[in-house]
Nucleic acid binder design. Structure first.
Lengths: 105, 105
DNA sequence: GCTTACCGTAAGTGATGGCTTACCAAAGTG
DNA sequence: CACTTTGGTAAGCCATCACTTACGGTAAGC
């Protein structure tokens, strides 16, 4: 249902980096920002976008905010792609079979 | 391997519309553009981006160019997401179980 | 209470990107 | 050959966006 914002969120390379960092498990903003080529506020803004896209969740832990990956957004994108999968793949292989490898680009 | 450009390509709503139109099967540019709120050159530009992202392929048919969905780009995005799937989902459910529903957003 | 650490937000700026119109090339049709 | 159809490309414009610095607000430590 929110695959639209999820795509937009994952389109930016830096924001993907932020997202991928969370693969190592939940982390506070400061830790995520450390070692990144952009400022901490920039990371905060990226996290906000990711959160609105349902790709991450945050929880307060003292003065820190710990972010973790939210499977919800991932699931939305996955569903969107799967919607194409059979449909498009059928049409594609049908095309390929029709003119059996006379084209390759 | 080209999930990067695929995400960027699918981030734009209008470009997604172009892409989704191909679900009805391979179509020439003119047919795709007809009924769309943007000009035909705009559609051409979108198709170029989609092509470079490995999401569509084109073949010449007389003076027309017929575009179809290319599963290759879809597969790349799918693999990228799956890479998170287990990893992130494990971490997530682990977190959820740890503080068993005391937080909800 | 004061200071420090942590983080979100506001404002401003430079770059990216999607759109339009205009133009050009190629393939069919008389 | 002239004419039409089809579609890719160039140039220019305007909106969006990612980044920076500056600021404010809250929780912990002394």
């Amino acid at each position: 249902m929110a695959y639209q914002s999820a795509f937009a969120a994952l389109a930016d390379p830096m924001r993907r980096s932020v997202f991928e960092r969370l693969m190592d498990g939940p982390q506070p903003v400061g830790r995520i920002a450390r070692g990144m080529p952009v400022s901490r506020p920039a990371v905060s803004q990226h996290l906000k976008v990711l959160k609105e896209a349902g790709l991450v969740t945050d929880r307060a832990e003292g003065t820190r905010r710990v972010y973790s990956i939210d499977p919800q957004g991932l699931a939305a994108v996955r569903r969107y792609l799967d919607q194409f999968w059979t449909e498009a793949l059928d049409a594609f292989t049908a095309e390929v079979e029709k003119d059996e490898g006379e084209r390759n680009a």
